Simulated assay, not measured.
Amino acid sequence: MIKLVECPRDAMQGIPDFIDTAIKAAYINQLLEVGFDTIDFGSFVSPKAIPQMRDTAEVLEMLDLHKAQSKLLAIVANVRGAEDALYFQEIDFLGFPLSVSETFQQRNTNASIADALRTVEAIQNLCEVKGKKQVVYLSMGFGNPYGDPYSPELIAEFVEKLSQLQIETVSLSDTIGVATPELITQLFEVQTQAFPQIEFGAHLHSRPESVGEKVWAGIKGGCRRFDGALMGFGGCPMAKDDLVGNMATELMIPALEQEGYDLGLNKSELQEAMKLAKFVFNS
């Protein structure tokens, strides 16, 4: 079974011009009609850090969730954000960005890796009380541009720490688009075999021409959870100025279907979502 996570939050967050709240909600409502496993719809973070996401609570109130099968995921960067997100019963997952790069952890959440790990533990405790799940994104999971230490062994050390905290879902994140198919397969093979109790996801950034081979590499390594964004919009605004977009969902879908996976998506609603994406992102 393949889980597709659609990430309008990631697609929108770096856009400097504020997208009207009603437009955000209309777009996410259309995505809910498609049948994705999960929608990464917003974030509860400082509006000074990510101004585009300052209306996440208002967007949530405008979502039509009565018939939706998709689960909702919100990104948080600290305990306060987690507490804000957990106020809403509609949210199923809290996503936390934990970096294997000390430089990027400071840049992204203004905290050290040690502090971030303590935050992961605190959020995990809150999630257990509220009956929610935490998804930890290991950012810079395939390398970084800062010269910080990186190796597959380092990734395994981080996953071991998360396993001890009872984290059930870890998404390996190629924050700046440097992952090769060989490295993707290698990392997922090692992690899925060493930690069978953890669901591993792939949050990859890619040029359009490389989407298929990266999906196939992830499948070969044992990954069954993939993040994407329609038309490949987005990228982390905290990473670097030269952003590589998200994996284009409409390119991942045929790549996965060619591998024999039935994704159970409503293709007509997907086409409507594509049309709306062009409007939302002025493409």
Rank of each mutant, 00 (worst) to 15 (best):
T21M: 06
Q197K: 15
I176S: 01
L73K: 15
N266V: 05
A11P: 00
L63F: 07
Q271A: 15
P47Q: 06
E209L: 10
A179R: 08
A77N: 14
I113S: 02
R225D: 09
E33R: 13
K133D: 09
I15P: 11
Y150S: 02
G95H: 05
E272Q: 15
P47E: 07
E209D: 05
T249W: 03
I75K: 06
L243F: 07
M252I: 11
Y150A: 08
D148S: 02
D17G: 03
F18P: 02
A156Y: 12
D17V: 12
H66Q: 14
S163W: 14
S151Y: 09
K220N: 12
D37I: 03
A77T: 14
F36P: 06
R80M: 15
D40Y: 08
A57M: 11
E257P: 01
F226L: 01
Q13E: 08
E213W: 00
F279T: 12
N144C: 06
G81V: 02
D262G: 13
V135K: 14
I2L: 02
E157H: 12
T192S: 07
R107S: 14
F44D: 09
K240I: 07
P152E: 02
E157T: 14
D227M: 05
L162P: 00
G235N: 06
N266T: 05
L154E: 13
F195I: 10
S46G: 07
Y261R: 04
E182A: 15
L86T: 08
E102R: 12
R224G: 12
T103P: 10
L63S: 02
L165P: 04
L65Q: 04
L256C: 09
I176N: 08
F158E: 09
A85W: 05
F188H: 10
A57N: 07
E6L: 03
A229I: 06
G131P: 03
M274I: 13
S173W: 02
A156F: 07
S151N: 12
G42E: 04
I19T: 06
Q258D: 12
P254D: 05
G260V: 07
K71M: 10
G222L: 07
A11N: 03
Q69E: 13
F96N: 08
G232R: 00
M62C: 11
D148C: 04
L65R: 06
Q134V: 10
G228W: 03
A74Y: 03
L72Y: 08
I253M: 04
I23C: 09
G95F: 05
D242N: 15
D10H: 01
I2S: 09
A122Y: 07
A229S: 11
P149V: 01
G141Y: 00
I113W: 09
S210P: 04
A49S: 15
T109C: 14
G14C: 04
P8D: 08
S210Y: 09
P97I: 14
I19Y: 04
V211S: 01
L126F: 05
P16I: 12
A156W: 13
A248H: 01
Q197G: 13
V244Y: 04
M12R: 01
L276Y: 10
L154K: 14
R9P: 09
L276P: 01
F36S: 06
L154A: 14
A49D: 15
L4G: 06
I50Y: 09
A74S: 10
P152Q: 11
T249C: 03
Q30T: 09
E199M: 13
N125G: 15
L251I: 03
